[in-house]
């Protein structure tokens, strides 16, 4: 009797064990399959620009003239690469100080109000659709820049400002978590030695949490790098390297969204757009590696 109960128990255990194992394996298998097929698809399309259409990779990465419909077609993607990097970095330059200050406010200065009101409000920004950001940018930021700076208002500056608002939640959330996780002994020690609050924040909190803050910034840049719609609406989309922050420019994503639907699969123009997508994908991998490296460092 006791034995049969035990056997039943054991078989139940076995079933649960196997159900869990098979389920996990299926999920992981699907995940890996999805990721690999995505990468394979983008890579095979993107690389055919070089192998099938015979575009020289050096021309693509250093060329400044993008005229895929002209005779002969020219595929110089440097303006897009420059545009993508400058808007993302500009966005990070604007958002990083704001995010850090917001985190200091939430954790150190007014935890009650900060946690209850400010943090949810900032996180709300992440839930706003990007087309709304684009339209607000087009209706508010672009006319504002047009009035006070020379140029048409569209350009890297407008793109950077719109993106900075979009990546603020990422940077703030990570900075808040990092600040909250700081051992209180460090701060108390600093206060005990007679530092003021600002001296403690500036000399102790900032340097110790720096790797985590950088992680947030890199994640923010990665998000800005991949954002398409909002940027496309405010950047102007001229395929040139702009001479000022207020002159029409392009990013990798805006070039792709602008032309992907109008070109035909398999044509040189379409393949070149996939090459831009491949560059985006590769850059995202690089950002992920930077984040992992920063995380490793912050543990030491």
């Amino acid at each position: 009797m006791a034995r049969s109960v035990e056997r039943e128990k054991r078989s139940k255990h076995l079933v649960e064990e196997w159900v869990g194992r098979v389920y996990t394996l299926i999920c992981v298998g699907l995940l890996v399959l999805t990721i690999f097929s995505m990468v394979y698809f983008v890579a095979s399309k993107g690389l055919s620009t070089f192998f099938r259409d015979g575009v020289n990779p050096i021309d693509l990465f250093t060329g400044v003239k993008w005229a895929p419909e002209s005779e002969p077609p020219l595929f110089g993607a440097l303006p897009f690469i420059v545009g993508s990097f400058s808007t993302s970095i500009l966005a990070a330059l604007i958002a990083a100080p704001l995010g850090f200050c917001a985190a200091v406010f939430i954790v150190e200065l007014m935890p009650k109000f900060g946690r209850k009101v400010l943090q949810p409000v900032i996180e709300l920004l992440a839930g706003i659709p990007s087309v709304v950001y684009g339209f607000v940018g087009l209706s508010v930021i672009v006319p504002f820049f047009r009035d006070i700076f020379p140029g048409q208002g569209l350009g890297l500056a407008a793109g950077g400002v719109v993106l900075s608002i979009m990546i603020l939640p990422t940077i703030t959330t990570i900075a808040t978590d990092a600040l909250a996780a700081l051992p209180s002994g460090l701060k108390e020690g600093s206060y005990a030695l007679g530092s003021t609050r600002w001296q403690t924040i500036y000399r102790i909190v900032l340097p110790t949490t720096l790797p985590a803050l950088l992680t947030g910034i890199v994640l923010g840049i990665a998000r800005a790098f991949g954002e398409a719609l909002a940027v496309q609406m405010v950047i102007g989309n001229a395929p040139h390297i702009p001479r000022s922050l207020f002159e029409s420019a392009s990013t990798l994503t805006s070039a792709i969204t602008l032309s992907m639907g109008n070109t035909i699969m398999g044509t040189a123009h379409n393949n070149a757009l996939w090459t831009l997508a491949l560059i985006l994908l590769t850059m995202t991998f690089v950002f992920v590696f930077i984040v992992r490296w920063l995380e490793r460092r912050s543990k030491v």
Partner: peptide
């Protein structure tokens, strides 16, 4: 063919073109 000139604006949607 028109040229893609430096400083020009390019937009895909008619609504945005009209607004600009």
């Amino acid at each position: 063919k028109a040229e893609d000139l430096q400083g020009m604006i390019q937009e895909d949607s008619s609504g945005t073109v009209k607004k600009l």
